[in-house]
Amino acid sequence: MAKVKGAVVVDMDTCKGCNLCVVACPTQTLALHRNVNGKGYHYSYMENPDACIGCSNCALVCPDSCITVYKAKIA
């Protein structure tokens, strides 16, 4: 059976580390990075990339529209 895999790209510079995407993620893919970006925020990143299913929940709740979502079927 083909498996659906997703990947998100977080714009590190515009992320404000509000944590809403981390909470919205149903598969615990995202987390806040221990490093900070230019504004001093702990930006969001894919801590567990294998778990991503490309559901776009994170991108929908992101107030700063800094998440882009990709989804593909892997045989």
Binding site: G6, A7, A59, T68, V69, Y70, K71
Partner: peptide, 27 residues
Amino acid sequence: NIIKPENLVYQKSPVLTDKVMHYCPGC
């Protein structure tokens, strides 16, 4: 391999400008 234009499912709306919003985190 997944991050390719043909696999794109959600991106920032083109009607939004590139300016970073001044709102507080999580607003």
